[in-house]
Amino acid sequence: MDTPHYVAARVQQAIAEDGRTNELGIRVDVRGDHLFLRGQVAGEDQVHLLTDVAREAAPGLTVHNEVTCVEVREPGEEEHL
């Protein structure tokens, strides 16, 4: 079995380089047979694609996708400089 450290690195690289995702800011942690994804992305469709790419890069691990979409509120107060 691969060392969890390298599995996490491989998944993180796959998420950055795979054309379906190209996400650079996703944190990947492996604990036993479980793989955890954390971070934020721009759209809901992107969240599910992360699961697909992670599963392919680390077959046999259970993927827990805790990634959320960026919440965008109204512009709000201006700052005076």
Partner: peptide
């Protein structure tokens, strides 16, 4: 960066004395 702002855009007023 949008994930930092978490709002549609930030607004900065240059020349605070008049803002």
């Amino acid at each position: 960066a949008l994930p930092v702002l978490q709002r549609a855009y930030a607004t900065y007023c240059l020349d605070a004395e008049e803002c």
